[in-house]
Design a protein around this nucleic acid. Sequence first.
DNA 1: ACGATTGTTCGGAATATCCGCACAAATTGC
DNA 2: GCAATTTGTGCGGATATTCCGAACAATCGT
Lengths: 296, 296
Amino acid sequence: MLNLAHTRSFLAVIDGRGFRAAARALNLSPSTVVDHINQLEAELAAPLLVRRRGGIAPTPQGEAFLPLARALLATAERAREVVAGFPLRIAAASNIGTYLLQSTLASFTATDPCPTELWIGGNPKVAERLDGRQADVGLMEWWDDRPGFLARIWRREPLVVIVDPDHPWARRTEVEASDLIGVRILGGEAGTGTGTLLRHALGALADRIETVNGLGSTEAVKRAVRAGLGISLVLASSVTDEVAAGDLVALPLTGAAIIKDLRLIVPDPLPAGSPAARFAAYALGQDMAAVSNRLV
Amino acid sequence: MLNLAHTRSFLAVIDGRGFRAAARALNLSPSTVVDHINQLEAELAAPLLVRRRGGIAPTPQGEAFLPLARALLATAERAREVVAGFPLRIAAASNIGTYLLQSTLASFTATDPCPTELWIGGNPKVAERLDGRQADVGLMEWWDDRPGFLARIWRREPLVVIVDPDHPWARRTEVEASDLIGVRILGGEAGTGTGTLLRHALGALADRIETVNGLGSTEAVKRAVRAGLGISLVLASSVTDEVAAGDLVALPLTGAAIIKDLRLIVPDPLPAGSPAARFAAYALGQDMAAVSNRLV
DNA sequence: ACGATTGTTCGGAATATCCGCACAAATTGC
DNA sequence: GCAATTTGTGCGGATATTCCGAACAATCGT
């Protein structure tokens, strides 16, 4: 089978009018270029170059091969560009995508200027997009270990209790898990990420909490809390602005700290050097392949 | 650098809708095909195939790569065809080309149907064509060891004395070298292949022979001998027809047999498997590479 | 005639290729 | 249902390829 590296050497020899110049242009040793040409000639079973006193010249076969060789290399280059041109499609769960990912993504694209597409939606939708290969990287609050993917914990974000500034707890510096009993908690209903986490953290007290559902987004929850409709548990990062502005009060949970493990998911045969691999390496601060059990 | 063998495996997997079928089609083991796809994905830094329950499917990148991969393989194939389509250009000295080569060439093209071109001319012209790369193989009576070529003795043909049927020697069965003294010999003048050979074989008697020049071709020599203008020394093979028909009498030389070494010449970096190499191997009954000191 | 340059061969270390085997998961057959 | 088959995959190692530095022959410039 024809070898593109050998073909490239042939073109370099023609263009550089010599083996030495070709070797210099390709960062190879001259003897390697000689090897390449010899193998190319053996492969095509025809002499391609006449080595003569002084310079070199293509044989008729070499002359005929020349445009095809150029086409070959150009096509290979175009293939690389076309494939590399595909944007990195990130799918993130809404609060991750809205509050946490932006800065990471901005600094990533600053160091690695590859086109990216960020899609934000609910956790199940993220999983769905990963499954349907509509996303190259997923960021979500849980992962169900379905096969064909690798999952790593990206960040461990604590949940904080948020109350409106007029709430009785507004002056407190922390909240005990047991304080949550009997209080109306907005969001965090059973089945959601936060809800599951909440019930798990409270243990035996889990069935005595009171949650209100129907509030889709974190933004809606925040508005409801500010309106004094109840308290809530959200990612600390999602309320930094409101806390700074005095619109909301965030209180850490003590006794049973609730940590949300935010996971980064990639399809398992993850080609090394691909945008997805580069982003994962950047986000995790380490190469994903380091912990993968596959050749990537 | 992109690898065409890997690319071919990719196409085979797509076309065969699976790794196993691809491996079968390419006479490879399935694990090799897996390797190829993995390396291709690493090379292009993008996933190309989704391995799913049952079958496989190309990713968007794979879909985009597909036509380029096909173009790549098609171009490589066309390159091979174009280069292979060049005819084998044989240049032969006139008597070799006229009397000896025809049968060899005919049986060669019967076993190896590659397009051939036979050019017949004088010995110096043959060397000239080799030097100017207008011939891929040369067949001639001597070789001056110019660099860049390999020479092998193709055949060792004895020269015979030919006389016309009415000549006093016509009833003899052989001729002594010393008999040639004082006899008018047509052709064989100093400087020609036969002339040099003749003088070398006769040794001390060399300066006592009488040659007539001005007869270019062997055919002209034969006509002159039949006309009783003198005798001559020619390749035995060049007069088999006339001897059989009784138009000429051929007599072997004794005492100092004159053997003409017919040489086959090819350019030195002789690509293995090329038409020239195949012809040389066929004509010599052995691979030229076996005695070459180069990688061919 | 001399050194500088060029193409080449040679031997070796690093690397890639390819396969047989074994395993896991999914599919098929009964 | 459950075993048998099929399919993709990971692993280890025999084999081949790749690539280089060093040394050499031939050529060119001056």
